[in-house]
């Protein structure tokens, strides 16, 4: 029974990484939002499974937040934002899909090598692999934020990054404040989504580089 529990946790955490890869090659905004909803659903299942096997009822709250807020409300709200504001439906990328996928694989290899070596002494194999998967999801989320131009896709990249963090926090045995942290993150995300909508951030920001605003401030000769 214990092995089965481990396998299921492993499967769920692994599929989060897989879905992160799926998000990298989506070129339609709606498809991207749906894929994100799928990742949030998987996260909710992974956290709930942890709560069940480790008998940690407070993690159910985190799982519920992930399910209701991130798998349902936020994708729905972003769908409406995209529709209402007439944002371009295709995803603009900085680099092609192939180099991004290759970079993603490199990042996953890196995080697995780093984390497995680091936690060699740990007695709990689940925590080890969860951490490796979590770091992969975090790095893939960052990769997505870097290689996308449009505000909505950057937000999706950030939320995916945050899924990795919640996975890591839930995998760390007995970590306090996990629920509080996931609430804090939900507030953050809600603000981003509201911000995108209210302030009509529809223009794409070509980069998050200081030079971009230098031009506005008359600093470019």
């Amino acid at each position: 029974m214990h092995d089965l529990a481990f396998d299921i946790a492993h499967l769920l955490a692994g599929s989060l990484v897989l879905v992160s890869f799926m998000m990298i090659y989506q070129d339609r905004l709606y498809a991207l939002l749906n894929t994100f909803a799928l990742q949030a659903l998987l996260l909710a299942m992974a956290v709930a499974w942890q709560a069940f096997t480790r008998d940690a009822p407070h993690l159910y709250a985190t799982a519920a937040i992930a399910l209701i807020f991130k798998a349902i409300i936020v994708p729905w709200a972003l769908h409406r934002v995209v529709a209402r504001m007439g944002i371009q439906r295709t995803v603009e990328t900085v680099t092609g899909v192939v180099p991004t996928m290759l970079a993603g694989m490199g990042l996953v290899a890196l995080s697995i090598l780093l984390m497995l070596q680091l936690t060699e002494a740990a007695e709990n194999p689940l925590a080890r692999e969860d951490l490796a998967f979590a770091l992969s999801v975090i790095l893939l989320g960052m990769l997505m934020m870097v290689t996308r131009r449009n505000a909505v896709t950057q937000v999706v990249g950030f939320m995916s990054l945050e899924n990795g963090l919640i996975l890591a926090a839930a995998g760390a045995q007995g970590m306090p404040l996990v629920v509080e942290i996931s609430v804090a993150f939900s507030v953050l995300i809600a603000m981003i989504v509201i911000g995108v909508f209210l302030f009509r951030i529809r223009e794409r920001f070509d980069s998050v580089d200081t030079e971009a605003l230098d031009a506005f401030r008359g600093e470019r000769r």
Binding site: I138, F158, F205, A212
Partner: peptide, 28 residues
């Protein structure tokens, strides 16, 4: 102002996300 706030928000959030991962590792 909006672009500056957005940039601050995105970079600050990524920074703060990494700090949380570091915090989790300290706990571990």
């Amino acid at each position: 102002a909006l672009e500056a706030a957005w940039k601050y928000f995105i970079l600050g959030s990524v920074g703060i996300a990494l700090a949380l991962f570091g915090t989790i590792l300290v706990y571990l």
